[in-house]
Every structure is written in C-alpha cells, then in structure tokens.
C-alpha cells in the first residue's frame, strides 16, 4: 500500500464517518461541526491526491461556510443543543433505501466502467496553479465569469428575500 493510497483511504473514511455523524447526533451545533470536519477531511484528501490549490481552497471555504451554518443552526432550531433529543426526521425507511441504492449504483459504475490507464504523476503545485489561472482567464473565461455573476446575483437575491419588508406609511394619502 502506497502512502497516497493510505491517506486517501484514511481521509475518505473520516469524511464519510463525519458525514454520517451529521445526521446521527441530536445536537445541531455538533451536526454543523461534523459537516465541517467531513469537508475538511475532503480537503485533506484533495491534498493527498496532489490537488494542493483545491485542497487548501476547500478547507478555507468550508471552515467559513460551516461556521456560518452553526450560527444559523443556533438561531433557527427549536432545540439547538439537542438536550430534548427531538426526532426531526421523516420517511426514514424510504430515505435509507434511496441512500443505499444511490451508493450501490455509484459504486457499481465506479467498479464496472473501464476508466482507462491511470496517470502516475501530476504537475507540481506551482505549475497546477499557473495552469488553472491560465485556464480560468483563457479558454474557460466565460464559464468562470458566469459563475461570478451568478454568485453575485444569488447574494443580492438572498439579501432581498431575507430583508425585513419596510411598511411605509404614506403621509400624502390623507
């Protein structure tokens, strides 16, 4: 077993385990933290797959995103600490069946498809970043710019939806 294989397995198992913990704990703050650990383990998995830029980006982005999620959890949940052990699930058997079927189908595709010969090495971290930068500002610029505009639109739309409607009293009516 190579070191890369070991680290991919280790961080993969950690990511899946923390993913399961998200839905097993009663405490919503623990759920958000488990999701943070799951996503961080994924970032570490990217690093072990020599995708340095994406690994670091994943860890940084998810740390921020999940911290915000934990705050929202405390704000919106009836029992954020999970002390009441409220069951907040429905159609459990159907969901479990759908989850298992999708897992088995995806694994079957992964195992039975001939993916061709695997590449033994990847470009080093600096070269990867240069290549990605040139890709984003060259051939894929339209896609990249569209993603930027879409996220800006989503931010404005989310703020517009979330903002408290102001009730204006029209003084000129009377």
């Amino acid at each position: 077993m190579t070191a890369q294989m070991f680290f991919i397995s280790f961080f993969g198992i950690a990511a899946v385990w923390f993913g399961i913990v998200v839905f097993r704990t009663f405490s919503m703050v623990r759920s958000a933290l488990a999701l943070l650990f799951s996503q961080t383990a994924l970032g570490a998995m990217f690093l072990s797959m020599q995708a340095e830029f994406l690994g670091v980006l994943q860890i940084m982005m998810m740390a921020t995103e999940m911290s915000i999620m934990a705050i929202f959890m405390v704000m919106f949940m009836m029992d954020p600490g999970g002390l009441g052990e409220m069951d907040m699930t429905h159609q459990k058997r159907l969901s479990l069946g759908a989850g298992i079927v999708s897992f088995v189908a995806a694994v079957a595709i992964a195992v039975f498809v001939d993916w061709g010969p695997a590449a033994s090495s990847a470009p080093d971290a600096a070269q990867q970043t240069v290549d990605l930068g040139l890709e984003l500002l060259g051939r894929s610029m339209l896609i990249f710019e569209t993603a930027g505009i879409t996220i800006l639109t989503a931010m404005i739309a989310a703020t517009a939806v979330a903002i408290q409607p102001v009730k204006r009293s029209n003084e000129h009516e009377h």
Binding site: M5, I8, S9, G12, I13, A15, V16, G19, I20, V22, F23, S38, L42, M45, M49, S95, L96, A98, G99, I100, S102, F103, A106, V107, A110
Partner: peptide, 15 residues
C-alpha cells in the same frame, strides 16, 4: 478509493 468515497458521501447526502 476516491470514487467509492464520493459514492458514500452521495448516498449519505441523499439520505
């Protein structure tokens, strides 16, 4: 290994 991890995360997410 990576594809199986992805499949497992997908399954947990669907659940």
């Amino acid at each position: 290994l990576a594809l199986i991890t992805g499949a497992a995360l997908f399954g947990v997410g669907v659940y």
